[in-house]
Design a protein around this nucleic acid. Structure first.
Lengths: 191, 191, 191, 191
DNA sequence: GATGAATGAGCGTTCATTCAT
DNA sequence: CATGAATGAACGCTCATTCAT
C-alpha cells in the first residue's frame, strides 16, 4: 500500500466513523482499527485529531467542488445555472450520505463555526460562484434584493433538510422530486 | 427548593452548558455545579446523561409549541397562518438562542438520529398543525403538490440556516428581514 | 481515612516512587496503586503531575526547615551555628534517604531549575538564615570574602555528595564522621 | 562517512539533546534526525537506548580523563597536584557545559545508580590518581585522616555545585574565582 | 548496511457513574 | 434524600523498537 493510499484509508475510516457516530463516537483507536493500521500510524499522516478532521473537510470540499461544477456553463441563464448547481449538490449528498453526515457534524462544531466565519468574512473563493450568481441575479432584478446570507439560507437550507430526511428514510428522493425541490428553492429567492 | 424546582434547575443548567459547549463540553459535574446541587443528585432526577439529554429535548418541544401557536387563528388564510407560525418560530429561535443551539446539538448527534427514527414510526403529534396546513393548502391548490416532508424542508430549512447565521453574528435579523425570509419560504412552497 | 490523610498517602507514595525511580519511573497509575487509591483520585488532590511534584517539594521544605532549625541559637558563635545547621541537614538526609533522593531528582529537572532561579534572584526567605550567617561571617572576617553562591557550594556540595555515597552504601556515616565532614566544610569557607 | 564517524555523530547528537532536554526530551527519532541518520540506524551502533546512554557516559569519562591529567606532574607538591586536577576539572566542566549537564542527568537517574553500584564492587581505575594523592597526603599528615570517600566529597562536591550555578547563570566564574574555589576545597581536606 | 514507516504499550488526564456518609 | 469523594475505563497522544524494502 502506498503512502497516499494509506493516508486515504485512514481518512476514509475517519470520515465514515465520524459521519456515523460523531466526533466523540470516533476515537482514534477505532479509526485506526477500521483503517487496518496501528493507533500510532495515524499520527504519521495527521498531526492530531483536530488536524485530521480539518483535512477531512478540505479533502471533501476539493472532492465535491469539481463534481458540482461539472457541466456548469456560464452562458446559461441564471435560473439554469442555479438549478444545475443546487441539484448537483443535492444529488451528490444523496449519493454520498457519509460525506453529507460528516459535513453536518463538521458544521455543527467549533471546527465548522471557525471555518464558516472565515468563509463569510474572508470571502473564501469557493463561495464566489454562488455569490456571483446571486449578485448577478439581483442586478438583473431576477433575484430578490436580500442579503446574500439569506439567499444562501433559502437555497441551501431546504437542501440540507431534505437530504437529512432522505438519508433517514423519511422520503425517497427521485429525479422528479429533486428537480421539484430545487425549483422550489429558486422560487424562494425569486418572486 | 421543591423537587420540581430542583429538576428544572438541573435541566436549565444542562441545556445552557450543552448549548454553549456541546455535549462533551458539559460534564455532569459542571452541570451539577451550575445547578447548585451535588453531582450525585442529578441521578435522582435523571437516570443517566442520555436520559437527561432526551428529557431536555422533550421539555423544549413542549415549551416551544404553545409559544409558536399563540395567536394562531384557524379562520385566517392559509398564507397568514403559515407566515404566523413560521415567523413565530424564527423569532423564538432568535430570542432563545440557547434553545436553538441545544436543538442543533441534539439533532446533530446519535440522540437526534434515534429520535428521528422513532418519529417516523409513530408520527408525532407536534407536526399535525403544520401537516394539516399543508394538506389544506394542497387541497386548495395554493400549496404545491409535493410530499409533506419536502414542504417541511422548504419551510424550515431556511429558518434553521438563517437562525444559525444570526446567532453566529453573520447577519443581524430585524423585523423586516424576518418577514421577508418567511415570505420567501411561502414562495418556495407556493410559487 | 480523612481527606488530609489521603492526600498524604498519595504524596508519600509519589515521593517514594519518584525518589526511587525518577519522575518518569513514577507513572500516576503506579503512584495511585501504591497509595491504594484509584488513578483518578490523585487528581482530586493535585491538579496534575507537575503540581503534584511541586507540592511534594514544598511539603518537603516545610518539613525539613523546622527540623534543621530546631535548637538553633542566635547567640551561639558563627562557627557553632554553622556546624549545627549543616550537620542537622546532613543527619536529616541520612535518616530520610527518600527525601534526599527526591530533592536530587527535583533539583535536577526543569522544576528545580525554575525554583532555584526564583530562590537566588528573588531571595526566598528560606535561605535567609544561611545568607545572614555568611554575611555576618564575612563582616567579621571569619568567613572568606567570596560570593555567597560559592560559599553555599562549599558548604552544601560536600553534604550532598557524602549523603549520596552514604545512601548508596559507599560509606557508613556515624556521628564522628558527620562532625568531621561538617567541620571540614567550615574549614573550606574560613581560612 | 565511516562506521566510526557515524557512531560518533550519533553519540554527539544524543549527548547534546540529553544534556539540553533530559532523557525523555531526547527521543531516538530526534537523535537520529540531529545525527543525520535514519532512526533504525542508531540500533546498528547501540543495541538500545539504555546502552546508548551508558556508552555515552563511558565515552565521556574516557574523554575527560586525559584532559584533566594533561600537565599533571608527579614531582609537584601534593597541594599543587590537587589544585591542578581540581581546577582542570572545574575548567573542563565550564568549557563543556553539555558534558557537565549530561553527567548530571546521568548521575541523577537509574543509570547513574546502577553505574555507581558497579563501581563500588570493582573499584574503577579512574579514581586511582585521586586516591593515590589522598593517600599520599594522609601519610604525610598534610591531608586529614578521613575516609577517601569523604575526601572525594569535600573536593568534588563544591565543584559540581559551583559548575551548576555557573551554567545556570547564577554566578560568572573567572580565573580568580576558580582558583579561590579550588583552594577552598584544599582547605577543606587539609585545615 | 541503511532506512523510516509502522507498531502498540504506556503515558497523563477526564468524566459518567456509584455509594458510604 | 442529598452529597461529593472515589472510581476506572477510555481518551488523545508519544516513542522505543522492529523489519520490509
Amino acid at each position: 500500500m502506498s503512502k497516499l493510499e494509506k493516508r486515504d484509508e485512514i481518512a476514509r475510516a475517519a470520515l465514515g466513523l465520524i459521519a456515523e457516530n460523531g466526533f466523540h463516537g470516533a476515537p482514534m483507536a477505532m479509526i485506526a482499527e477500521k483503517a487496518g493500521v496501528g493507533a500510532g500510524t495515524i499520527y504519521r499522516y495527521f498531526e492530531n485529531k483536530d488536524i485530521l478532521i480539518n483535512e477531512l473537510y478540505r479533502d471533501l470540499e476539493e472532492r465535491i467542488y469539481p463534481i458540482i461544477l461539472c457541466g456548469y456553463e456560464q452562458k446559461q441563464t441564471i435560473r439554469n445555472r442555479f438549478l444545475h448547481m443546487n441539484s448537483a449538490m443535492l444529488r451528490y449528498f444523496i449519493e454520498n450520505p457519509l460525506d453529507f453526515r460528516f459535513l453536518e457534524q463538521f458544521h455543527n462544531s467549533p471546527f465548522g463555526v471557525a471555518h464558516r466565519r472565515d468563509k463569510i468574512l474572508g470571502k473564501k473563493k469557493e463561495c464566489d460562484i454562488f455569490l456571483e450568481l446571486f449578485r448577478e441575479g439581483i442586478a438583473q432584478k431576477i433575484v430578490k434584493d436580500l442579503p446574500l446570507v439569506i439567499l444562501f439560507a433559502l437555497s441551501f437550507g431546504p437542501i440540507l433538510t431534505v437530504t437529512r430526511d432522505h438519508i433517514l428514510g423519511f422520503i425517497k428522493l427521485d429525479d422528479v422530486l429533486i428537480d421539484q425541490t430545487v425549483a422550489a428553492c429558486w422560487d424562494a429567492i425569486t418572486a
